[in-house]
């Protein structure tokens, strides 16, 4: 890419906004995923009894919905990212591309 174009894009406030928002959001969601997964693993390592606690009177334990929730959370987090990226981030990217062609 031609360096003039590149430096013009970098100075575009829309580019700075995109990078700031998306990078922050991506690291935040990554940290959340790490927290959920390693929280689960540490719970398994240090408090097995809690996960083996029955829900109500049946044999189903609290560990089942928690484990399923970890799986579902991975999908939900990707969904949250995609939703915001498809609208807000893509709009900013389109604006940056349009400005660059001016």
């Amino acid at each position: 890419m031609d360096s003039n174009l590149s430096s013009r894009i970098r100075q575009n406030p829309a580019f700075q906004e995109l990078v700031r928002k998306r990078t922050g959001f991506a690291w935040l969601l990554s940290a959340l995923m790490l927290l959920i997964y390693f929280g689960f693993i540490l719970l398994v390592a240090f408090n097995k009894a809690f996960l083996a606690t029955p829900l109500g009177t049946g044999v189903t334990t609290i560990g089942i919905p928690i484990g399923i929730a970890v799986i579902v959370s991975a999908f939900v987090l990707t969904g949250i990212y995609v939703k915001r990226a498809n609208s807000e981030f893509d709009e900013l990217t389109d604006k940056i591309k349009k400005d660059a062609l001016k």
């Binding site: 991506a26 690291w27 969601l29 997964y37 970890v70 990212y81």
Partner: peptide, 14 residues
Amino acid sequence: SVGWLVGWPIILFL
């Protein structure tokens, strides 16, 4: 099985 899934969001975000 959970361990095999949680890499995917990271791939998406980063």
